[in-house]
Design a protein around this nucleic acid. Structure first.
Lengths: 140, 140
DNA sequence: CGGGATCCTACTTGATACTG
DNA sequence: CAGTATCAAGTAGGATCCCG
């Protein structure tokens, strides 16, 4: 995701905008969106607001630092809202914005592809590794 | 993407498979797919086979190492085929497999979202940074 | 042209400790 | 609970050089 890019800020016209262009800011946006934790975090918020702790549990294995960082970026980019309830043990809710919900759809498809096509990929890997094991020798 | 994970290899039953589960191999698959260079590379192959050099030009700013690495991973995972033509200056074509084409659709949506929603995101960032600039002081 | 092999740095991420 | 701040370290990724 590139931690905290504050750079560029100019917005190219829609016709010129291109993720394949190195300096187009939308590439950084792609970099932010096409990220494992981003995809999982947004997915975890699809069914409504969630607390920080709930998210940490849901995203098994994520460190609190990564979760915080991911949520901050999403909040700054307008995909998520952060609501603080000044109750005693303190409570913070995260919720998708309209913009966030629009991003949730493509990401859901990516997640679904990952779970749905695991067998095919594993099969392909085995075949590939097998071929690699057969042909290896540069004949020495 | 996690460079070259050779690990796990077992395939959980479809019902149990879950990207939110830390040890489910499909999470690594998500990590591979939800990647900037993967999304761009697969997108660059949507319209048919492309040569290594063509891809390097298309993906502005990618290093040959990253391109090679990305293509190798995609090949191993069965999303892309690699064809070598033993001509003199040597020529190598990369082409999406059926599996690769199925992955291309979700990724195209992610790329489209990035270019299409750049203005909204930039606006949100400005507002966020502005608020941050207003409230900042911990009162010292 | 299309890489493979190295080297090296910088950013990413995790682990800890502390706070409102 | 929900963070922030720091420190340590792993590794992603760029730069180079070389080869078939």
């Amino acid at each position: 995701m590139g931690s905290m890019q504050v750079k560029t800020d100019w917005i190219p016209d829609a016709e010129v905008r291109d993720v394949y262009s190195r300096q187009c800011p939308c590439r950084d946006l792609l970099d932010m969106l096409a990220d494992k934790w981003t995809a999982l975090t947004i997915g975890a918020l699809e069914d409504g607001p969630r607390r920080f702790g709930q998210l940490r549990v849901k995203l098994e294995g994520i460190s609190q630092k990564m979760l915080t960082q991911t949520l901050r970026t999403l909040e700054r980019d307008g995909l998520v809202t952060r609501t603080v309830y000044p109750t005693v043990p303190l409570r913070v809710d995260y919720e998708l914005t309209e913009l966030g919900r629009s991003a949730a759809e493509p990401l859901a498809a990516v997640r679904a592809w990952s779970t749905g096509n695991l067998p095919q990929v594993v099969t392909a890997r085995r075949a590939f590794d097998q071929r690699a094991a057969d042909v290896p020798q540069p004949s020495s």
